[in-house]
């Protein structure tokens, strides 16, 4: 497949709404797990612009981000290993959409999503994975094939997963420098997402004054601009989810969401308030 060439430095820095506008309706969008760096401010911008028909792939799970996008009518399909609010229980909008049949759910398991993205990173068509045999996940996934290990003397069935190539990876990180390099620290699944996706859009807490690749201590945790299409500054852009190492989850805010989102009217009220506050 063709990967978009990274943009020139001057065009990489956008404002938040311009960044969200780069995610077209119907996009195949990779988003990270709650512990990784979730672009919640950009998510609210997506809801504001009334994005439609998104096909999410959660790397490998999601929580409030997927739940809000689903509740706001932005999502047509989701490939996921799990959507939940962690300590705060089930994700109410995901659960309601699953029960009503209005959401196409493509069941997965965490290492399968990681492995399928790794296949894209390497530019190979598939990746093998152990486990899975005897699980009803296989019945849900006609695209996953069982083969016999060609290197084994005796029969040794195992599963092949086709490469997952998202159109766009979207996440939140601590810093971008002016060249468009993004510091992700130890959250290497963000690098895997970016390597696998055709384009990567990032929100960051702040601009880094200097070159993230100039020093070993920052370079080792840096996603190079090669993979980064555009970035926007969004201070506390993961709120109310945590940005590991910088701020914790806003537990009270997530609890309130978990309660409000249980009903259609509560969710509508929550969305209205949140979007007005963010605008």
């Amino acid at each position: 497949m063709l990967y978009r060439r990274p943009m020139t430095t001057a065009r990489k820095l956008l404002d938040l709404d311009a960044l969200a506008a780069r995610i077209p309706d119907g996009a195949h969008l990779a988003i990270p797990a709650d512990y990784s760096g979730v672009a919640m401010a950009a998510t609210r911008a997506l809801v504001r612009r009334r994005a439609r028909g998104l096909r999410l792939v959660t790397v490998p799970t999601s929580g409030m981000q997927a739940d809000i996008l689903i509740g706001a009518g932005c999502v047509a399909a989701i490939e996921t290993s799990g959507v939940g609010l962690g300590e705060h229980g089930l994700a109410p909008r995901f659960t309601a959409a699953a029960k009503s049949g209005s959401l196409h759910i493509i069941e997965a398991t965490c290492p399968a999503i990681h492995a399928a993205l790794q296949a894209s990173e390497k530019g190979v068509p598939f990746m093998p994975l152990r486990g899975l045999l005897g699980s009803d996940l296989l019945a849900q996934r006609p695209d996953w094939k069982v083969i016999d290990n060609p290197f084994a003397a005796a029969g040794d069935p195992l599963v092949l997963l086709p490469a997952v190539r998202p159109d766009i990876a979207l996440f939140h990180a601590r810093w971008a420098d002016r060249a468009g390099n993004v510091w992700i620290g130890r959250r290497r699944e963000l690098a895997t997402m970016a390597h696998a996706a055709a384009r990567t859009l990032v929100t960051v807490e702040a601009l880094f004054d200097g070159d993230l690749l100039a020093d070993e201590s920052t370079a080792s945790g840096t996603l190079p601009s090669l993979y980064v299409s555009a970035a926007a500054v969004a201070e506390r852009g993961a709120w109310p989810l945590p940005l590991p190492g910088l701020y914790a989850a806003d537990d009270a805010a997530i609890r309130r969401y978990a309660q409000e989102a249980r009903s259609d009217s509560g969710f509508a009220r929550y969305l209205d308030e949140t979007l007005r506050a963010a605008a």
Partner: peptide, 8 residues
């Protein structure tokens, strides 16, 4: 919520 890493 979903199968998480159980199948593996």
């Amino acid at each position: 919520p979903g199968s998480f890493g159980s199948a593996y």
